[in-house]
Design a protein around this nucleic acid. Structure first.
Lengths: 341, 341
DNA sequence: CGTTAGCACTCGTTATCGATGAGTGCTAAT
DNA sequence: ATTAGCACTCATCGATAACGAGTGCTAACG
């Protein structure tokens, strides 16, 4: 529905605006070497594009800026996904060579790289653990009435909680209960631990029932609080460098949002697999209605594990961010596959 | 060296300025019910106080604001440490009643409470672990060539790392090495693990030497990276609400500093025990030269464990923050003593 | 008919100027 | 020693004007 020339002009306007953050006038477009029309012609086209909803005018005597619809069209039809800058590839690759044998470390590092290379804010959602299965369960006594409960999953994820031991129970008894749980529950997905316990293991435990209840409580809690540890942020303060956030109040609502792990979890929970772009008001959370969120899911061995995302102003370098996310999500998959074979 | 009246006036100016964030004029002081002097008298005293270095004038026709030296005198001699607001005590107490059986959780929660009650940024440094001693060391295999190494300390602190197992080594052999380490090293402070191993356990390990090397490497790494996990922040965005930080650039340098865990560790490493107040340029880091940092150490059973701190503008409610830190540091000591008996 | 030069017009930005008023320092009277 | 009085300073605010970037429209051009 847009003519070739209109598409070209829209493309140029968005590219220029992404770089300059200032409204683009007809004259500056006309002066470009790849454009051979006079300002007047450009103006006519721009007026049409505005009528169609792809451009906006901050005020009468200013140039045009892209609207949400304009960005959307750009992302869907115009953007040329450049190869990632060689230098940037280099940095990502060197990320590979560093040996990191902690999954958390890899993920946090990936977030750092993303925010460094883009100067936006990166958000990475780590793998969920409740689909993992129990590999090992253990109690380590640390005093007369306290012990550390340790849970290891098949992916090597470790959760631990300090629990206090009831006075009327010996350490031996406790240990026995743990042994029973271990023999019966290894291999069971964490999400089904509790139900599994009640239906199949309940009777065997006999007098340990009460203690098992307690242990299960610990397990349960471990799974809940783990949400907090799935979200990795980096470069939140990059928001402050964006000219659209020179107003302190605006940036505060965004930064406050980033502090709320549950909200981020919710934002990321409903994303499709692959690359997704949410522009401005397409985001349901009002605080980021003048931001764009670009996300890419990563997976290993066919299992979708988590999501990496970049949050920046709507005036974002979509081409760069998309290709970078694409690159990194694939690389992460390779790195993480080690834990998921 | 200051007359009683000068002290009174300085006190009033700082109290008012802390509340209003605007230069205080002689007239507004004179109008207070507890002051019975004319503006002219106040002005004379203010001129003297300025000459002595306790006050400053932003410009000729403005009121006075406290200088660093003024704040320092206020903190050292004038501030009346009010009891903590009942409502606030209530909140801190309710923090007690919630049962939290994870030390991290308690510390993070303490940070949240601090920032909520003060509207400043809170920084909490958790207990260091390298003075803890080894309680338990274990390998949990998670695949053919990978295992999770788990370290439990006497305080119930758990560190874990994923390690890959060399192809030329059976799981059994590995396990035996672990067993030897366990019998020999339990009770040894983490800081001395490595040297202890080489001097005393070395020869016994025989052919496992190489593997032990590797395991020790894991331990070593665990102790290093643990620094990152000692710093707990809350309310960093509160900085944005302070009128002295309406300028985005200023606030960015502060927020960037807060993102650098090592810098914070360094800031907190050289603090005396008890309450400490660092005002403005008394802070060595330039980024917070117009901030004040108030810290309080907390301890259990005589052992100093960590530090809780509040970072805000120099125009900070010192009375409130100091008494709150005092309260909370003692309460935390009680809560945490459980892990350190 | 598409394109473009020309031109009047809009409107945000910036600078200037004066009025305002809060606050000071100084002096002289109390 | 205290204070009333007063001249002075200077940030803030509003109005006004100059400026200029950019537009929309019209008419001319190929």
């Amino acid at each position: 529905m847009l003519t070739e020339r209109q598409r070209m002009i829209l493309n140029v306007i968005i590219d220029d605006y992404i770089r300059s953050a200032e409204p683009i006038g007809s004259r500056s477009i006309s002066k470009r070497s790849d454009v051979s029309f006079s300002p007047a012609t450009i103006r006519n086209e721009m007026a049409d594009l505005e009528e169609l909803g792809f451009l906006e005018q901050p005020h009468t005597s200013a140039g045009r800026i892209p609207s949400i619809k304009g960005y959307r069209y750009y992302v869907d039809h115009l953007v040329r996904l450049s190869e990632v800058n060689d230098q940037d590839v280099q940095k990502v690759r060197s990320f590979f060579t560093e040996k990191m044998n902690q999954m958390e470390q890899i993920i946090q590092h990936a977030a750092s790289i993303l925010s460094n290379l883009t100067n936006y804010t990166s958000i990475v959602l780590g793998p969920e653990t409740f689909t993992n299965s129990l590999k090992h369960f253990q109690l380590v006594p640390i005093s007369e009435d306290a012990a550390v409960a340790i849970i290891v999953t098949n992916t090597g994820h470790v959760e631990n909680r300090t629990i206090s031991i009831p006075a009327d129970m010996s350490m031996d008894e406790m240990q026995q209960a743990v042994n029973i749980l271990n023999t019966k529950l290894i291999g069971v997905p964490l999400a089904r631990l509790k139900s599994k316990l009640y239906t199949e293991v309940g009777q065997e435990l006999g007098r340990y029932a009460e203690q098992c209840e307690k242990l299960l409580g610990v397990l349960d809690e471990a799974l809940k609080s783990e949400d907090d540890h799935r979200v990795f942020l980096s470069g939140a303060t990059n928001m402050l460098t964006q000219p659209e956030f020179k107003d302190v109040d605006k940036v505060k609502t965004v930064l406050d949002l980033l502090d709320e792990t549950p909200t981020i979890m919710q934002m990321f929970s409903s994303l499709p697999s692959g690359i997704a772009v949410r522009i401005g008001t397409e985001n349901t959370h009002e605080a980021i209605n003048n931001c764009s969120l670009i996300t890419a899911t990563y997976s290993a061995h066919g299992h979708q594990l988590g999501t990496i995302g970049i949050l920046g102003p709507t005036r974002m370098d979509y081409a760069k961010v998309i290709s970078l996310l694409d690159l990194l999500s694939k690389d992460m998959a390779v790195l993480l596959s080690r834990w998921y074979k």
